[in-house]
Amino acid sequence: MQRSLHMEPSLCTGCLQCEMACSFEHEGEFIPARSRIRVFEFEHGRTSVPYTCTQCVEAWCMKACPTNAISIDSDLGAKLVSAQACVGCKACVSACPFGTIEFNPFSGKVDKCDLCGGDPQCVAACPTDAITYVDAGASGVGRMASAAQQINQETAS
């Protein structure tokens, strides 16, 4: 089963544990500026929204890369950047409509979410289950269930 990261902003408190877990996993230190997942706040913190690469099937980054540095992990569905092949040209950065692949000025390569080899550390670190790693074919089920419950209540009343 292919899984994908599922974000539920209504559960996010904006604690940024995901950013620290991600950066620690990939950089060996707590460096949120290099986290592949980021949390954005709106209206004085009324909402906090985590966001990262959604692993597009027909990925803009992959198609834009002139050195074929981006490949698909067929098990996970993740798009992975080969550090050997990446020349830091940033074509992928321009191509990605979501901004979720980013140039790293320290390494001269690009960084993106790689799903931590199937054990995403942001998910493990999230204290409120605002980020979960779920069946990619059923990530909307939770919200459908909530909507259905509402209809159920209206029907019952």
């Binding site: 209504s10 408190t13 604690c15 544990q17 004085h44 909402t47 906090s48 204290p127």
Partner: peptide, 19 residues
Amino acid sequence: LLTNKACFGCTIACGRIAH
């Protein structure tokens, strides 16, 4: 009360967001 809110790194999130 609209929601609770965390400071940096906080897994308690005692902060209140209201209107």
